[in-house]
Simulated assay, not measured.
Amino acid sequence: MSFLFNFPSPDEDTSTASQPFTFSFSPIPNSASSSADEVPAAEKDTPAPSSQAAHAPTKEHVFQCTIESAPSENPDDKSAENKWNNFAMDNVGLFFLCPQWIDRNILATSLPNLLGSQPSQNGDVVKSDIVPKVYEGGFRVWDGACDLLVYLISESPVDFQGKKVLELGCGAGLPGIYALTKGATVHFHDYNADVIECATLPNILKNLKPIADGVDESRVRLFSGDWLSFVRFLRVEKLDDDPLAEDNRYDVILTGDTVYRQDVLSSLAFALPRLLRKEGTVYLAGKSIYFGLNGGTEEFRQEITKENLIECVDSKVYPDCVQREVLNPIELIANDQVTRSVAVLNARHTGSSGL
């Protein structure tokens, strides 16, 4: 078993700037149809936790997959060869935008305010990989996404054909893209709309380009916003047998490095059982501990025991200087008495950041 990333050499010339990579995107209004095929907006009278007042409401973004919309390269652009990285393992190859290319063509020009960038003494822009509750690192491919791919491809292959899949905290979207290529319907969700527009979407289109004319556009949906607003957007707050709510939930949820901060764990533990179908499974990848942030898989295990709605049955450990693991299966606990008041549940999560 082996996998590799095709990263540009540290000695590459980064002085040549290519043209900005842009897409036309329009948020879908939150007044969507309430049918099972079109996910409805949240009910206006649903009480929101006070902790969500300053966070990101859910938006859906238009997806079009055609030969014309797929990324194309200018053969005369010498920097284009360094635009894409490649994840390769066994017979799987997935492309994603090179972080250095994103730095030069997106972050440096379009997102300094989002990232909280500040000029240094020499006038250069200093960027942060993460600004909590503002930018959650979606333009980087983290270890969790790599571990998820290794696990799904080699360690415990999953039959995605016909499954409804959510990649939560998707960023570059590689695990979700892999599921998409294996026949799943995939919804991608990230905190930042800019990440969805400038990273997730281009990566999807790049990997689907060879089969663009054969892709059903209804198999892909793109969302941005915080986790709790997404739960309300789908109208899945209550753990009951409502057919519409169950249809809006997912067979498989993929998520990597979303447990890195302790203050988001309660929101994640709140969201997962409400987004998961009765026979569904969560694959969660992360480090056992994130030093300085107090998050990690161990803290997440403790968090999900508080409500006793989902449980982690097993995990695959990847030894490193800091232990990494994929928690799977994470499943709903069989319980006939799970229907509880959403107001009570929301009250228990006051104070969480709710990514």
Rank of each mutant, 00 (worst) to 15 (best):
N248S: 15
R249I: 07
Y250A: 00
Y250D: 00
V252G: 03
L254A: 01
L254H: 10
T258H: 01
V259G: 06
Y260H: 05
Q262T: 08
V264A: 14
L265A: 06
L268P: 01
A269H: 00
A271V: 02
A271P: 05
A271F: 09
P273Q: 02
R274F: 09
L276Q: 05
V282S: 04
Y283T: 02
Y283D: 07
A285S: 15
K287N: 08
I289V: 11
F291V: 07
G292P: 03
G292V: 12
L293E: 15
G295F: 01
E298H: 13
E299L: 07
F300L: 11
R301Q: 11
R301N: 11
E303Q: 14
E303T: 12
E303S: 13
I304W: 01
K306S: 11
K306L: 09
N308D: 15
N308W: 07
N308C: 12
N308K: 10
I310Q: 04
E311D: 05
V313R: 15
V313K: 15
S315F: 10
K316I: 00
Y318E: 00
P319G: 12
P319I: 02
C321T: 14
V322A: 06
Q323V: 02
R324S: 12
E325G: 02
V326Y: 02
P329Y: 03
P329K: 05
I330C: 11
L332G: 04
L332I: 09
L332D: 01
I333V: 15
I333F: 03
I333P: 04
A334D: 10
N335Y: 04
N335W: 14
D336W: 04
D336H: 03
Q337F: 12
T339V: 12
S341L: 13
V344H: 14
V344D: 14
L345S: 14
